[in-house]
């Protein structure tokens, strides 16, 4: 009984809020460009679903591609840097500086570098930049967080550098790397959307473009529809990454 109630509670809350919203719109007669009623948003979604799905796929595939690219570069760089203390010390401040710089601030320049004719390249690059750091710092932390007694054991048995890396450090880093990917997945979507906004009408047809286009025309119901698709997509990506992280960890630890 309490279990069903727990599952139903959030759905019920959303239903109540939507009902209130709908009633408020109808009773006050607020203009649709200012606040469209939920029914109008639903109608916009139903009408534009093919367009919205296409745009969602465009943004999602950009984010996924960026995630893959970030994963590859961040993991390799972390591996190289972890082998040399001096290198790590040298890279650290630079990495922090890049990490704390908001992606919006560097986006216009990246768009110019990528060439105004190639907004896709700029969008991917920016998504890679934001997805890079959680994976990079996760991998670096993981590679250094080995059990000191296991390190002693590897010393005792005269392990080579390669054996230590392959059999101890990389497996030890796995949970940290997975966590990094989970965070990076969400950030990659944010990065892609921010980059789409900055790249503007340059030919990208992602969800950000749908939002820009509809809000410029004061078609607020369409804007809401695109935002809802965007957050559903983000939630779905997060759920998939979370589930795969848990599945891999369960396999990894045996429970």
């Amino acid at each position: 009984m309490s279990r069903t109630l727990e599952t139903l509670a959030p759905i019920l809350l959303v239903a109540v809020l939507l009902g209130l919203w709908e009633a408020a719109c109808r009773l006050t007669g607020v203009p649709a460009y200012f606040l469209p009623a939920p029914s109008a948003v639903a109608a916009a979604m139903a009408q534009d679903w093919a367009l919205l799905l296409g745009s969602a796929w465009k943004t999602l595939s950009t984010a996924l591609l960026a995630l893959a690219f970030a994963s590859l570069t961040a993991c390799s760089l972390a591996l190289i840097i972890s082998t040399n203390r001096l290198l790590e010390k040298a890279v650290q401040p630079l990495a922090v500086a890049l990490q704390v710089t908001p992606v919006v601030a560097i986006a216009p320049q990246v768009v110019i570098w990528a060439g105004l004719a190639h907004p896709d390249r700029a969008i991917i690059s920016l998504a890679v930049i934001v997805a890079f750091f959680p994976i990079f710092s996760g991998a670096l932390t993981g590679l250094k967080s080995t059990d000191p007694d296991l390190e002693r054991l590897f010393d005792l048995y005269g392990a080579t550098r390669w054996q230590r890396l392959l059999r101890l450090r990389i497996p030890s880093a796995t949970p940290f790397v997975l966590e990094g990917h989970k965070v990076a997945g969400g950030l990659a979507v944010i990065g892609a959307v921010v980059a789409e906004f900055v790249a503007g009408s340059g030919g990208s047809q992602g969800l950000a473009w749908r939002i820009l286009e509809s809000s410029n025309r004061l078609q607020t119901a369409k804007t809401f529809a695109a935002v809802i698709v965007l957050s559903l997509m983000g939630a779905l990506l997060h759920a998939v990454l979370q589930a795969s992280e848990q599945a891999i960890l369960r396999r990894f630890r045996g429970r």
């Binding site: 007694d149 296991l150 002693r152 054991l153 005269g158 497996p171 990894f252 630890r253």
Partner: peptide, 15 residues
């Protein structure tokens, strides 16, 4: 390789 140590914790590789 002819010296072995057992630590306070089992110190096994969890993976």
């Amino acid at each position: 390789g002819q010296t072995a140590v057992v630590f306070q914790a089992p110190t096994l590789m969890p993976w």
